[in-house]
Design a protein around this nucleic acid. Sequence first.
DNA 1: CTTCATTTTGCAACTAGTTGCAGAACAAGC
DNA 2: GCTTGTTCTGCAACTAGTTGCAAAATGAAG
Lengths: 183, 183
Amino acid sequence: MSLPHAILTALLEKPSSGLELTRRFDRSIGYFWSATHQQIYRELGKLEAEGHIRALPSEQPARGQKKSYEVLPAGRAELARWTAASQDPKPHRDPLLLRLRAAAVVGTAGLEADLNRHLELHRRQLADYEKIEQRDFPPGKDAPHDRIRHLVLRAGIDLETFWTQWLTHALEEFAELPESGTT
Amino acid sequence: MSLPHAILTALLEKPSSGLELTRRFDRSIGYFWSATHQQIYRELGKLEAEGHIRALPSEQPARGQKKSYEVLPAGRAELARWTAASQDPKPHRDPLLLRLRAAAVVGTAGLEADLNRHLELHRRQLADYEKIEQRDFPPGKDAPHDRIRHLVLRAGIDLETFWTQWLTHALEEFAELPESGTT
DNA sequence: CTTCATTTTGCAACTAGTTGCAGAACAAGC
DNA sequence: GCTTGTTCTGCAACTAGTTGCAAAATGAAG
């Protein structure tokens, strides 16, 4: 049950409408918690019903149609509670590793191309992250909340680094393997 | 849609009953594709209906009640197809990183203990993997399917290594942070 | 052979996330 | 005005995974 808390965090960082949230979930927040706009609208409805957020009515005099939401004290309290609560790590699910294991049984034919594609995607993501790091975390900024956000970004950077290295290594191994068929 | 293919892979490695599969999903396969026994039984039913697997009737003369399944040629073909098919990487979902980001807004109170707990869990998982590596992949074994399985295990080892390092670093940063409240 | 516990299989209901579609509001062109 | 396209919001149906519970089969104990 993380989506409502992801939304609360995003709204605390900046009150937003559903669409603005959707856009932000495609960037920053979505890097480690993705969501579609339908999930977001549904969840906004629930959070409002529960009294955790409310629509900012003012701004435009009732015409500008984008409903923007802000977090109420109850919502902030719930987020703090959730953040502090102990949670067990969920077991991983990685289809690519699964495919590799299957390939050990049915053959590696066709897999190499997709490994290359994934490598390229991870390289691109890594480059994005590094650009964000340069932009948002120049040496010397160290307010506590910046340090924590930087830590999160580092996790992203190091994970992408790991995957590019692992995929590179995997492709080297593939190159040495005898060809094995599709059957 | 990876579960059926995870099951096909497991059954190709060794024909098994539902319960045996469940046990194996708690170990090896489940390290990167977990599943509950209910998922497995349901999926076995579907796979049988589709003609991808069949129950081994023989063995015990109709008495030994554990239904064991084996993969049929159609199932193997489907697995090979799926393995070779291109798949987009799904976006990550990591509640711990999300909580950290929330903590940057609502305060880090209470989070440190859980980071320590996760660190301990990842260390234990890492130790498990390393034991498996020593047992199953002593230097010198390099049949192709062994090399591929070793590659998969290396991904697990390196990922756990990454998390223990990152969590250690995060905890160091926390130690330097001024205390921040629950509000 | 009956009773009780355990193992193995499975159904049903629920939660979370995805996909397809559609209506309401605004914006631009005629 | 009216039509057309785009933005923003949202419903409904579907898929995947989880949780709770229970029946059937076996095994052990009396």
